[in-house]
Simulated scan of single mutants.
Amino acid sequence: MESLNQHLECLKLFGDETEGQILESLNGILLALAENRQRSSSLLTDTGIFPTLAQILKGNPSCAVKAAQVIAEIAKNEEMKKPCIDAGLVLALVPLLESTDQEMLLHAGRAIGRICYENSDLQEQLVETGVITSLVRILTDYPDSEPLVHVNLLALCNLANLEIAKEALSKTKVTEHLVKQLRRAENHQRIETITEVLQLLAENDALKVQMVEAGVHEALSEILLRLQGSSQAEDMCSVKAASNLIVSLLLGDESMQKMFANGCGIIYQKVGTWLASNHPQLQLTGALAVANFARNDGNCVRMVQLGVVLQLLDLLEQHVDNGDVSVQHAALSALRNLAIPVANKVQMLEEGVAERIQMLLRSEMAPVQFKLLGTLRMLIDGQGRELLSTD
């Protein structure tokens, strides 16, 4: 600790020291932190070195990279975040994100991310300083830098839950860059990080549309195709994350219509395969996709013409006794929505849908029976009831 004291005293003379001496002292702090983080952190706090680090960031470009690295290491300790904030280190670090030095971007990004983690007030201040533009620029300029992409994705993950951040991101091309990263992702951690960012962004309707236009749903369907046969826990988590994001994109009216594309969209093209699969998550995704597409009457008519009703009934019959309740509910919601247009009621009754639904009433689960009866009621409402009475 004596050596650390000397380095700290040296740094306090910032302005009188040469760049070589400053760098030597900063390296000394890094070494001390690596040897004993807790004791070194306490000493750093006691000596009040943080304002000096801010001065170095602002006034000595040659030493700023090393100073940012020191701050990033210091900020690993939860109790060290407040001294960093009080010394104004975050605002001193933000301009460094405009650098073209990848090492600078990496250390500054890590430092800011660690200091601001789970601090919504500070995160909002960051967004107000224009940090979103910097993050998207880095993702654009350095898509092949694994460390920078990782830090950037974590930063977006921390900020994307803020409405002000979503608004700022909707004015960028971030979705295009995230799709590129999703397509090249080779491990489940990267897939889940990107889908988590996209899931947060999908809470914004404008971003939903941008995501569909950028092909997010296509990249997700590729992931499902690649991982659906895996029994590895991490792959199953990725399948669930991808499935959930597809459903989230379908919740927006405009994004849903773009994905349906009159029954020619990639997701609807996959629905039949998902409904007929043995994978409960894919079955659920398929049923929820139909239920959401069926919010539009034109889509309903088109899907009935394409034969989706019989696929849903086949799925329900698989699950009637001891099946997955969530799959049953999703399939029944889809059938109920499909039965809303009058033209569909007639066709569905002619195809014997009512009889098949009545057979499903042997299910012993009350919520499922309730939904089945609701679907039957919708089916026989109006013209459908007249047709049923003549049979």
Rank of each mutant, 00 (worst) to 15 (best):
K345D: 07
H177K: 13
G265Q: 10
Q269M: 13
E24R: 13
L169P: 07
D321E: 15
L338D: 11
H177V: 08
Q102W: 03
Q347C: 08
R110A: 06
F370E: 14
K180S: 13
A339F: 06
L169W: 03
M303G: 00
G384Y: 07
L372E: 00
Q55E: 02
A261F: 09
A276L: 13
G28V: 00
R184Q: 15
F50Q: 01
L198G: 03
G88R: 09
R190T: 12
K258I: 13
I56A: 05
L57T: 06
R190L: 09
R356F: 01
L57H: 02
A294S: 14
G272F: 10
L360F: 11
T47N: 06
N5T: 09
A291Q: 04
E19P: 04
S120Q: 14
M359T: 11
G272E: 14
F370V: 09
L349Y: 05
E213M: 08
C63S: 15
F370Y: 08
E386F: 10
G130Y: 02
V342K: 13
N299L: 05
Q6S: 09
W274H: 14
I164R: 10
A219C: 08
G263N: 06
L139F: 07
S120F: 07
A185E: 05
E79C: 08
I164E: 13
L91H: 12
L159F: 04
G229D: 13
L23E: 14
A330S: 14
K58Y: 07
N292F: 02
I71F: 09
H150K: 15
I266H: 12
V271H: 03
E24N: 13
G263L: 07
V65I: 15
G384Q: 09
C157I: 05
H107E: 15
L11N: 07
R184D: 14
L250E: 09
I29C: 05
A68G: 01
Q269R: 15
D381F: 11
V304T: 08
L245G: 10
Q269I: 07
K258Y: 10
P147R: 05
V304G: 03
E2R: 12
L316E: 02
I357S: 03
L57N: 03
D253Y: 05
R377A: 13
G215R: 06
R110Q: 15
A54Y: 06
I194F: 01
G48I: 00
F293Q: 00
N337W: 06
L332N: 01
G252F: 08
D144R: 11
D141F: 07
V197M: 00
M348D: 01
S3P: 01
V174I: 03
Q102Y: 05
L288S: 13
M348H: 02
Q21F: 02
T193E: 14
Q102K: 15
L315K: 02
M378L: 04
G263C: 08
L23W: 03
A34V: 01
N161V: 12
L26D: 00
T172W: 03
V70K: 02
N296I: 09
S333W: 11
I74N: 02
L372S: 00
